[in-house]
Design a protein around this nucleic acid. Structure first.
Length: 192
DNA sequence: CACCGGATTGGCT
DNA sequence: GCCAATCCGGTGT
């Protein structure tokens, strides 16, 4: 079960994340992810089996979104990956913009598409128009928000792994190398 | 019901 | 480099 979400976090690299929302169609290739491994992972909101109003989405069947508000400002987007009752999640931290860059610029109040446009989980959500209104929705049907396989394979040797960001409170689990990104890709988040 | 603090960002010193 | 922004979930009284 540990292998699953870690494996899925790697497998999501190279997939296309799309939104078709108010403001227009946008998409980007996923270049950075983090795995959150169920109830045993101290960094996860579901650690120790926590089941609350916020985390109940995490316990549903994989293939849906888990979106929550962080620091009262940022909407962080996760993919739920486990079977019912096992709260595994993959945080999407950055995408390489593909479609609707003008729409993203408008949402981000930026004038030109620099590398910060969709780098970092909060920035990415803002650019794609992702908010908690989409929490718990399916990522498998092409409406609202979804993920497409565009035939891009990211080989294991092209994947960089390191500790997850901002989870210092997780003790030993903060050291697990469960942050993944595509080696050399310039659109990953600038964080450490 | 009150308090604490966060899977972050960007603006200011 | 430091720190405010800004909301609400989670926890304990």
């Amino acid at each position: 079960m540990r292998g699953d979400v870690v494996q899925t976090a790697k497998a999501l690299l190279g997939k296309k994340l799309c939104t078709d929302l108010k403001g227009g169609f946008t998409s980007g290739i996923i270049v950075e992810t983090e795995a959150y491994n169920g109830v045993t992972d101290r960094a996860s909101h579901a650690w120790g089996g926590r089941l609350t109003k916020r985390t109940k989405t995490m316990y549903e069947k994989g293939g849906i979104s888990y979106i929550y508000l962080c620091y009262g400002i940022h909407h962080l987007f996760n993919v739920i990956t486990g079977p019912v009752g096992e709260p595994h999640a993959v945080l999407i931290r950055a995408v390489e913009p593909v479609d609707g860059i003008d729409v993203m610029l408008r949402r981000r109040k930026m004038e030109s598409p620099g590398y910060r446009l969709t780098a970092g989980p909060g920035s990415m959500s803002a650019a794609l128009g992702i908010t908690t209104a989409l929490n718990g929705t399916s990522l498998l049907s092409r409406e609202g928000i979804w993920i497409e396989d565009v035939g891009k394979t990211v080989l294991d040797r092209e994947i960089e792994a390191g500790p997850r960001v901002g989870v210092g409170y997780a003790g030993q689990d903060a050291l697990l190398p469960w942050r993944f990104s595509i080696k050399g890709n310039r659109w990953k988040s600038p964080v450490k």
